[in-house]
Design a protein around this nucleic acid. Structure first.
Length: 478
DNA sequence: TTAGGGTTAG
């Protein structure tokens, strides 16, 4: 163990020296550059979502007119890579901005953090954050957001607390992101603490996004009445305010409340269009979006309202012209499954455009388990075998279906297959520490488990960071 | 001309 810590220390020292020397040698360069016209073009591509064109244009500048590139050009180019995202091009930009001496420009660093987060690469995102010398509220928020977006809410909350300890003042965006983490975790106490913090500052209380995040947090933490009270108290409501509340009611099985709110939303729209005909000015119209319909369909599904669900689905497509996404198909399958209409669910999956994902098939497999549908269950299991062959849960569900019907031979057969699956080694992220990695996976109750995990985490970060600095130098050609 | 945001099936 000591050897690992020493190694980690050595790597960290090397990295620190690498990053410090880069800052010293090049940080003066960007300040002398004049803002070029080229940035206008880059920005136009970016706002019209022509991200590939933005990258190609940047490449042309780099090859033929590098003196016209400043830190703004890099910023727009990184943003173009983040939106799509373009993984390799973004990393090449990272390498090039180091070459240009822009690596300690905080706007670029924060943008890079966001880029790596969009790739799902939290190690690099965190490493870019570590390299920021004077971390501010925005860079902290970007890091916390990266962990939330990548489904690590616990880490996000820890960072939010660390930020407080370091006396970095959170703003409305930080609090919104932190509330999202609380909602994911069901961390009501922390959510309430944030609400109390918000109440003390009038400028925060006026922020629409923050209020929406509060409604969502209360609803997800089981405090649906508090959520509704807050919702009713808000004067200005946007589509997300309505959607958050509809989803909240739907999750609590309150289908009538959810659908009632959706009705109110549409009523405002009707009133407004009538006002328009009569030449009066009404309040601003709020159109439901595709997420609103996820809430509506969830309400129908949780409330066992099959016909209503089908009706709203048609309404979404035919009246609002919204294109259903995979998630909407999933809602419909869930709707049929909860009502025990497994054939309908299966037909819906077969007829939906594109390939159904594993989650959708798994919803049906779960329903087959509850309803003892062996034949259909086997058919669904074959699909899942294709999509995610190593997923043990599907085999467990299948073995339960057999067991419930007393088909013990079949059950034993599947159980044996599960054992085979488990024999495959778990994912060990670090080769050098494979021994420890295996040791942990075999002993969940080990008294030093936390310490070992900590050491492994540090080691992973350091190794990755080292590898990252090497990659940067090999990527300098763009 | 700059960086970070909320709602999304199981």
């Amino acid at each position: 163990m000591m050897k690992i810590f020493k190694r980690v220390h050595l790597i960290r020292t090397k990295l620190y020296k690498f990053s410090a020397s880069a800052h010293q040698s090049t940080s003066h360069l960007h300040s002398n550059l004049k803002p070029p016209k080229a940035n206008q073009t880059l920005k136009t591509y970016l706002t019209s979502n022509c991200n590939a064109k933005a990258i190609l244009f940047f490449r042309q500048l780099l090859r033929h007119n590098p003196s016209s590139i400043d830190s703004f050009s890099f910023l727009f180019a990184i943003q173009a890579c983040t939106k799509t995202p373009f993984s390799l091009e973004g990393q090449q930009l990272h390498a090039n901005l180091i070459k240009f001496g822009f690596h300690s420009v905080i706007h670029l660093q924060t943008s890079l953090l966001n880029f790596y987060s969009a790739l799902g690469n939290l190690l690099y995102a965190h490493h870019v954050f570590d390299e920021i010398l004077s971390k501010n509220t925005i860079s902290w928020t970007a890091l916390i957001s990266a962990y939330v977006v990548n489904q690590k809410p616990q880490k996000a909350v820890e960072l939010f607390q660390k930020m407080q300890m370091l006396d970095v003042e959170p703003d409305q965006v930080t609090l919104t992101v932190a509330l999202s983490a609380c909602a994911h975790l069901g961390a009501l106490e922390m959510g309430e603490w944030i609400h109390a913090f918000v109440r003390r500052k009038p400028e925060l209380m006026a922020d629409a996004g923050l209020n929406n995040a509060l409604i969502n947090m209360y609803a997800k933490c089981g405090e649906i009445q508090t959520a509704r009270k807050l919702f009713d108290s808000l004067g200005e409501k946007d589509v997300t305010t309505w959607t958050s509340m509809i989803v909240g009611h739907a999750l609590h099985g309150q289908a009538n409340e959810a659908l009632g709110l959706f009705g109110e939303m549409e009523e405002i729209k009707w009133k407004n269009s009538k006002n328009k005909e009569e030449g009066n000015r009404g309040s601003s119209t709020i159109l439901p979006n595709d997420v609103t319909f996820i809430g509506v369909l969830m309400a129908c599904s949780h409330g066992g309202m099959i016909e209503e669900g089908k009706k709203y689905y048609r309404h979404m497509v035919n009246y609002y012209g919204l294109k259903p996404r995979e998630v909407h198909f999933g809602c419909m399958v869930d709707l049929f499954c909860r009502a025990g209409l497994l054939k309908e669910a299966y037909n819906f999956i077969i007829e939906m455009p594109g390939q159904a994902n594993a989650v959708i098939w798994r919803t049906l497999l779960g329903a087959c388990n509850i309803n003892g549908e062996i034949e259909l269950g086997e058919k669904v299991k074959l699909q899942l075998q294709e999509l995610e062959p190593g997923y043990v849960g599907d085999s467990v569900a299948m073995s339960n279906i057999y067991a419930a019907k007393g088909m013990w031979d079949k059950k034993v057969e599947v159980r044996d297959q599960i054992k085979q699956l488990r024999r495959a080694p778990g994912c060990s992220s670090i080769e050098v520490a494979s021994e420890i990695s295996e040791f942990i996976s075999g002993d969940d109750d080990h008294p030093l488990k936390t310490e070992i995990y900590e050491a492994l985490t540090y080691l992973t970060i350091s190794m990755k960071a080292y590898d990252y600095s090497l990659q940067i130098s090999s990527l300098l050609e763009f």
